[in-house]
Amino acid sequence: MSLLPHLGHGIGLRPPHYPRVADGTARVDWFEVIAENFMIPGGRPLRVLEQARTLAPVVLHGVSMNLGGSDPLNERHLGELERLIGRFEPAWVSEHLCWGAYGRYYAHDLLPLPYTDEALAHVADRIRHVQERLGRRILIENVSSYLTFTHSTMPEWTFLAGVAEAADCGILLDVNNVYVSAMNHGFSPHAYLAGLPPDRIGQIHLAGHSDAGTHLVDTHDHPVPSPVWDLYADAVRRFGPIATLVEWDDRIPAFEELVAEAERARAIEAEVLGARRQLA
């Protein structure tokens, strides 16, 4: 049983597709938007988001909360997020399990944490604070990584599961990030999924990546590749039907191509669940 309602198979809404929202032809199960892009006083993006929520449910996905950071949480930023939530009433809110700021400066990147008891307690504490402030449970997303720390004492999936349990939050499972990190660090992506608590998975992300030769890069500029689709099928098998979203942030294709990726996710989910029902 999923933590959150199964909204179906949506897409990340980015500026090239704003005209399709504005003219009402953006037909999709649901939209996810980057929260920080709408923390602005006015202008077209806010109007587009108002229009988007008349077409389909909207989810806010944050990138700069710095949940794993050692600076104090930015309460002003949380206040802006609160205002966005109040105005746009998202189905839910998500953030990343990472850090991205130090000494009040922002890297605008999703930087990796050491998987230690210290970091786990620290992040869980901050997530609890955020949830109290926002008055809602949030989802935290696993990020792609290109390094791990020698002083980590547990695998990433144990850390993610531990944080979710300790903070009583949900998990946004980014299947592409699991695959990218698995290839970069040499662990089994299926072992990763097996280590997660099914009752905390609230959403799934799908995306494409690039091969840099020595490592994979989470570029979000390609179609979802076959191994990620295969891993998604495994996730559906393990966790059941979960709201799924396709992200595409660079070299963004036509709206129809993006929606076709979401439709493929729908088909895979139906196939996996159909096979599971037959077995039962």
């Binding site: 890297a107 605008h108 990147d109 930087l111 050491p114 290109y146 390094l147 791990t148 720390f149 020698t150 002083h151 660090h185 040499g186 020595t214 490592h215 890069v217």
Partner: peptide
């Protein structure tokens, strides 16, 4: 550098360099 795991294809400094390059190029 000592706190980052070196792998067979990438050493710890190369792994940190991925982040440093991404920081600059993104901004």
């Amino acid at each position: 550098a000592d706190a980052v795991v070196s792998g067979t294809t990438l050493g710890s400094r190369a792994r940190l360099g991925i982040y440093a390059d991404a920081y600059a190029s993104r901004l």
